[in-house]
Amino acid sequence: MMESLKDKSKNSVARRNFIKKLTFFCTSLLIPSFVNSREKSEKAKKWVLTNGYSPAEHYWGMGVAINKCIGCGRCVDACKRENNVPREPFFFKTWVERYRIFKDSETIVDSPNGAINGFEYPRVEKKAIIRSFFVPKLCNQCNNPPCVQVCPVGATFKAEDGVVLVDSNYCIGCGYCIQACPYGARYLHPVTQTADKCTFCYHRITNKMIPACVEVCPTQARIFGEIKKKASPLVRFMRMNKIGILKPSLNTEPKVYYANLDMEVK
């Protein structure tokens, strides 16, 4: 009795393996890239960049403590300086929004010049405000990035450490990724004519530094760190706060986490 069972299970394993191989082979005919995807991800795990950084060993995210932000706009200024973003008010890798929610539940949002020079205080507020706050915005480095999904040529991609990058020497400048981003985080760079966006300062974080905006935030409203390590400033932040993400219904799975997120923030 036992023997026959064993035999049967052996048989079925063999059959299953055969079917597996067969389907694998068939799909490989249809989509050649599918075949070596596993092999590729193995290779990518051992990938070491020219500066000794291995992407597969990291997984980055950012925390934003909304009730610490004072709206000074130093992050916006530093971002533009660090990343050669044009100073004109149409191109931002990060910006700060001000929310004023009035008693009659009207909400006014503004971000004059991305808040690079802070905010002016409207001298006379017409109605009573019930709450007001600042919200820093940037690329959400989605785990499920719609921009990467739509890029027709593979010029934007998610690196092994979760950061979404743009290859400006390969981008054709079609603008589809800009349309697909629900957060308005992308723009077409007026000089290179290619898509551009926040990279978490990839040239800094791969050199053991933190992003420029985090570096200069005077109130530590921005926290940068590893998501998957046992302990990191970000992991601590996520333990200490209730966390919200932007537009969760779109299933983009952002890796920018907001503490004290208000329902009016979109």
């Binding site: 739509v150 890029c151 027709p152 290619t194």
Partner: peptide, 28 residues
């Protein structure tokens, strides 16, 4: 018209040679 609106029309061949199979536009 698609070609003319691209930021880099000279790179348009990439759509044919390295299409991202998940992109609706690459199916073009």
């Amino acid at each position: 018209p698609l070609l003319a609106h691209l930021g880099h029309p000279e790179r348009s061949f990439e759509i044919f040679f390295t299409p991202n199979t998940r992109s609706a536009m690459a199916m073009f």
